[in-house]
Amino acid sequence: MRQWLLAAGVMILSAGCSESNEGQFPRENISIIIPYGPGGGFDTTVRVFAPYFAAQLGDQVNVLPQNMPGTGGRRGTASVFRADPDGYTLGILNMPGLVLPSILGETVDYDLRQMSWIGRIESQDFVLLVQADSDIHSIEDLQAQDRITFVSIGYGATVLAAIQIIAEQLGLMNRDPIFLTGYEGTTDQLVALVRGDGNATLSPVSTALQYIESGNLRPIAVTGENRSSVLADVPTFVELGYPDLSQLNVQRLLAGPPGLDSAIMALLRDAFLRAIDDPEFKSAAATAQMDVAPLDGELAAVEVDANFNFYEKFKSNLANPN
């Protein structure tokens, strides 16, 4: 009993010692809030990245992924927004997924433009797809179709907004296309297209790749400034004369609450850049088929503003089609 008391006393004292060591951030574990459930893309990103990020922050701390699903990601994001700006609570945020609700007129409990951006981990470009045995081979073929049915995830999802913007830019809206929404995820959409529920869809390149390689789906065009390295013979929308569409993508960014102390912010941004450059992280990310596209904190913040402006511009096209 006495030994236990002694041990407890030593522990309290040692805790007090480290407490007095002010300024040595980080002193405790850092959690990264994932606003979605375990098993999804955001979850994988954090779980792969966290150990390498922790290694750059010193030997004493761990970086703990914490799933907080609900309200389409808004619950988790709001809790990052409201967290103490001490650097111990960060979040992996979805752009434009979390930009869209306020553009679509929902009230949200956070403001992305006030967040303290640590950096961007991933960015995925989209590819416009049709069935492999379809007679659509190009944008022109699509524009000549009598009946266009897009299969998509439900209202509020990035993919649907991107499809709506593409349909508007390609001049398809006067053909009265059908938006068959309500699929639960990107893969569901792809399977629905293979099955023939509709005749076109949009998906992140990396998710669609397998279906293209297996000969089920045919790529028509990709978003982004440059051609995708894995789909080198597929033209970009920019090449085809639709420069606005280059900005359609999904990005995964690391952020802290507004008002993060500048010293802590600098430390986190520095650790972020070193972790994302770690060859071991790169190989782990390649195994998990992540689309790593690093961007430092300042550029990430610029990207967030650009995103707001872009979707604000197309706001009138984004009403629920059903």
Binding site: T44, T187, S214, A288
Partner: peptide, 10 residues
């Protein structure tokens, strides 16, 4: 997916 086994047709 984390272990590089991308489920799907391939």
């Amino acid at each position: 997916i984390l272990h590089g086994l991308n489920p799907g047709p391939l």
